[in-house]
Design a protein around this nucleic acid. Sequence first.
DNA 1: CGGTTGTTTGAACTGATTCAATCTGTGTGG
DNA 2: CCACACAGATTGAATCAGTTCAAACAACCG
Lengths: 236, 236
Amino acid sequence: MASRRSKAPAPGVPLGETLVAAGLAPELAEPLVAMPHKVVEVDPRRPFREPGVPRDEVMFVRSGILSKFKTDPAGRRQIVALRFPGEGILPHAGRTDYGIQAIVRSEVMIGRAEDFDPIVEAHPDMQRFFWRLIRRHEAIGYEWLVNCGRRDSIGRVAHLLCETAARMHVGSGRLNNPFTQQQIADITGQTSVNVNRVFADLERQGLIKRHGREIQFKDWAEIRRVASFQPGYLEA
Amino acid sequence: MASRRSKAPAPGVPLGETLVAAGLAPELAEPLVAMPHKVVEVDPRRPFREPGVPRDEVMFVRSGILSKFKTDPAGRRQIVALRFPGEGILPHAGRTDYGIQAIVRSEVMIGRAEDFDPIVEAHPDMQRFFWRLIRRHEAIGYEWLVNCGRRDSIGRVAHLLCETAARMHVGSGRLNNPFTQQQIADITGQTSVNVNRVFADLERQGLIKRHGREIQFKDWAEIRRVASFQPGYLEA
DNA sequence: CGGTTGTTTGAACTGATTCAATCTGTGTGG
DNA sequence: CCACACAGATTGAATCAGTTCAAACAACCG
């Protein structure tokens, strides 16, 4: 019953719009989109940026989803953060400890740190904007720690689904689930086998209905409860 | 065989020094320590700051250790971050999703956001300094996610011990372990019962030796391997 | 069609939890 | 100085959630 991701990325919304939607004042978005940059198409689950390399570049997701990941010496992979359209990965002076891969085929705008940093420094409002975004990602990271540390496997998957629905701005209705079960396992610290069983469970309990990759929430209140999903942390 | 934390906090090192030790230029530390503030003694494992409350204050740890925590609706607690001496918790515009408690008796310097923000905005170098600190805490958070998501219980505890030794600047020798087993459980997403068994295991394997709370690393290389501890992420 | 990637299912196993009891060290007050 | 209370550490037994290994199945692609 597996369905495939669409082969083309979602229509490339202009970056400026997505940034403004994320809360940046329109006149501030302008110098950012005017910054010299290239746009790259990134294939899912292929090496894109390896860990341990210095990265003096900014990237913003225009469409698709990027993930930051780390790999244990034993080879087990853990995804530690996601970036949805309009979100970005800021420059990193020293060596980075994480790698980057796309979850689905994505369009990414890449600029150089030496172009980006002066722009931010020149606009205190933009500093505050990025400050707020960092804080939001921090809050999400904390929530993920609670997820991995304290919830059982059903709660973890349910929570990820709720969060994803919220971050993709689909309400409590249908979610076009972008993840493979392996990726969900890598995010929630489990095995893909178990993720599969959890999905079957959720469906058997009548909380969701699946048509291929698409997920329909049949009982939003109850799945929120199972996930103990309190969306407050997502509002910067 | 339990020993108690010393009843007095570690001698209150001047904040300026600890900030400089953390990499801040001495002339930049000055306006920070000159900022109007109060110094508070915080008792361990007592309510200090509750989640869900706006917090327009900065705090810097002068001695002891602070923890940020979240609590699941089911009442299970997860510690999501630690702050050692010289480290701080920056102001938070909206409602905070986490609470704050001390791990051991701590001295904390508390200032107001409205005093702190202008100082930072006036000094680009200080912005870069805090930027780097944020990045470091982000990296630690990612490593914690790997810890909770991908390591077994021995690896988790061993990793926390290694990280703590590094952050407290004790080399590979003796660590005056500041945590109760319950706190270690709350950090690593386990039960205190299991943490206890892990400690017994580590000792039986000859990796550590315990005298009350004090831990002596008998085989640093091997415990690093067990923990898959790569300290690179700690260097901002 | 054959190759690849992702999903699904079963059976055996194991690491960690739960519950409950006991033990140890520390501090307090009589 | 002893009795007592308290917090934390330790141990055992039963249980269970999640892993591991292995195999089959489905969908898509060239």
